[in-house]
Amino acid sequence: MHRKPRVFEATADTGGGGAAAPSLHVAPSPHLADPSLTTRRMMVDVLVALVPVVGMAVWVFRWYAVLQIVIATLACLAAEAVFTSMRRRTLTLGDFSAAVTGVILGLSLPWSAPWYIGVIAGVIAIGLGKAVFGGLGYNVFNPAMVGRAFVMIAFPAALGAAAFMDPGVALRVATEATPLTLAKQASQGTPWWPLLLGTVNGSLGETSALACLVGGLWLCLRRTAAWEIPASIIATVALFAGIGQFVNPGSPMTLAHHLLGGALLFGAFYIATDPVTSPLTFRGKVVFGVGIGALVWVIRTFSGYPEGVMFAVLLMNAVTPLLNRWAYPTPLGGPAPAAK
């Protein structure tokens, strides 16, 4: 090595010539960044965590599941490409956020939905759910749920409780109604084992509580999903449902139905934990989760809908900006004194 110190790049700060060998550059601290945390890795984590859910969906619903997921994902990717180029932004497909929206959207559809439902929901999810707000990070509502809510309102027949049933196809689960519909409308319970495993009818991703738990807990362990949110959602629903079961022991809407039977776990681990649309702080996250849990229980118990996860998440998304403002922590040492 040379003993002689090298020549350094001149900077605006120090002036001077020395344009020769550019080597040292000036930048403010900190100079290190945690290499393991990037937006893209976060999204890839979610995709990996969805593998068990997708696996169970394909096992139970066969190629119906494959079709829905592929259609919704392609629609979201295409919409992302079109909308970002319309806004003359650099293409953001590389952050995989559109892929996550697509897969979650596909998993939230019934196996029987016609192909255009996935396409329309995908375009709405990215367009209305995200692009109009200014892209990833600025949206108020969970994009997948925006898409899902839109098609549910626009095509009630294709997404209502009856759409899940079709005795004519070669799917065993298609001959029965979803567990929550059965419990609510026919007062008929479902044993807990099929609920846990997921060999029942329902939206593609929601049926297997087990798959959601496995993938969801892994996401929480990776700290990609904030554990506070699923924990407070599940605890709240469990509390209300437990009280409900105690007060009204004959009801088929048991604690097991509430927790394992609908989209609760899928929603709690994969949808409510969307960082963009959930609060920033610990306190905010807990209130957000309690709110979703309470709304889910209220909708399931008192409304005409058998399921309420989607609306509960969207409603709490709407109050997230308020929660962020209300739940900011006090600085260590107290608030900063007024400027002198």
Partner: peptide, 29 residues
Amino acid sequence: AALKKAPETNCVRCGRCVDVCPIRLVPTR
């Protein structure tokens, strides 16, 4: 190699900066 960083994206409001701030601020805001 020590300085390598992934490209900047929009804030995804993940709250990690809040989790690590030793003064308990909300750095993103």
